[in-house]
Amino acid sequence: MSEPVSEHDRDVVARQLGRPPRALVAVAHRCPCGQPDVVQTAPRLEDGTPFPTLYYLTCPRASAAASRLESAGAMKEWQADLATDPELAAAYTRAHEAFLATRDAVDVLPTRATAGGMPDRVKCLHALAAHSLAAGRGVNPIGDRALDGMGEWWDRGPCALPTDPEGTP
């Protein structure tokens, strides 16, 4: 699912983030507008510091949509669901293992910590939504719920406007 990062993609991600991307490995998902909205990062930053967030939601509109869900209490609600729904909890644990297997295939970090709070907590909907976009629906049930609640963040077109040769939008 991931694809190599072109210089154009790197430029778009830098404009989305408002800074140069760190440890960028691949474009893990593209928004329907064609721009990257999730990138895959290396398990370690360029200086060797562990960086457990394998998938990073870069689109500011998608990020804002995930933030709205977090502020509306979705994490607390879905955390409660994990405690009372054994099937959901088992699927979330499988998502955690799939995430770790993908990351560990690149580099094993000193801890087994992961992004998003998996497998026991719902901690970061940005990371969980990014995982669902990168891995595809059906892998991470909480990430899928986040995507369902985020709406169509792409409906107004690309979030990162092209720049002219001097770098101004």
Rank of each mutant, 00 (worst) to 15 (best):
M1A: 12
S2R: 15
E3A: 10
V5H: 02
V5M: 04
E7Q: 10
H8M: 08
D9R: 01
D9A: 04
R10P: 02
R10E: 14
Q16S: 11
L17R: 00
P21F: 05
P21L: 08
P21D: 05
P21I: 01
R22E: 15
R22T: 07
L24Y: 15
A26M: 04
V27L: 06
R30E: 10
C31T: 08
C31K: 05
P32G: 09
C33R: 03
G34M: 14
G34V: 11
Q35A: 10
V38E: 01
V39I: 14
P43D: 14
L45H: 15
E46F: 14
E46V: 14
T49Y: 02
T49H: 10
P50C: 13
T53N: 10
Y55W: 15
L57D: 03
C59M: 01
C59Q: 00
P60V: 03
R61G: 02
A62S: 10
A62Y: 04
A62R: 00
A62P: 04
S63R: 06
A64D: 09
A64K: 06
R68H: 06
L69D: 00
A72Q: 11
G73K: 05
G73C: 06
G73R: 01
G73E: 02
A74E: 12
A74N: 07
M75A: 12
K76M: 13
Q79T: 13
Q79N: 11
Q79E: 09
Q79L: 13
D81L: 11
L82I: 14
L82K: 08
L82N: 03
A83I: 03
A83T: 09
P86V: 10
P86Q: 06
P86I: 13
P86L: 10
A90G: 05
A91V: 03
A91C: 11
Y92K: 00
R94N: 08
R94G: 06
R94W: 05
A95K: 06
A95H: 07
H96K: 07
E97G: 03
E97Y: 08
A98V: 13
A98K: 10
F99H: 14
F99M: 12
A101L: 07
T102V: 12
R103V: 11
D104F: 04
D104E: 15
A105L: 09
D107S: 12
V108F: 07
P110T: 12
T111G: 01
T111I: 02
A113L: 13
A113P: 04
A113W: 09
T114L: 10
A115H: 05
A115M: 13
G117L: 05
G117K: 01
G117F: 03
G117N: 04
M118C: 08
D120F: 14
D120K: 14
V122R: 01
K123A: 14
K123C: 12
L125F: 11
H126I: 05
H126L: 07
H126M: 04
A127Q: 02
S132A: 15
S132P: 00
L133V: 07
A134V: 10
G136E: 00
N140M: 09
P141T: 08
I142L: 09
G143M: 06
G143E: 02
D144M: 06
D144A: 10
D144L: 09
A146K: 02
M150N: 07
G151P: 05
D155G: 06
L161T: 02
L161Y: 12
L161W: 13
L161N: 06
P162S: 13
P162I: 13
D164T: 03
E166D: 14
G167P: 03
G167N: 08
T168R: 14
T168P: 00
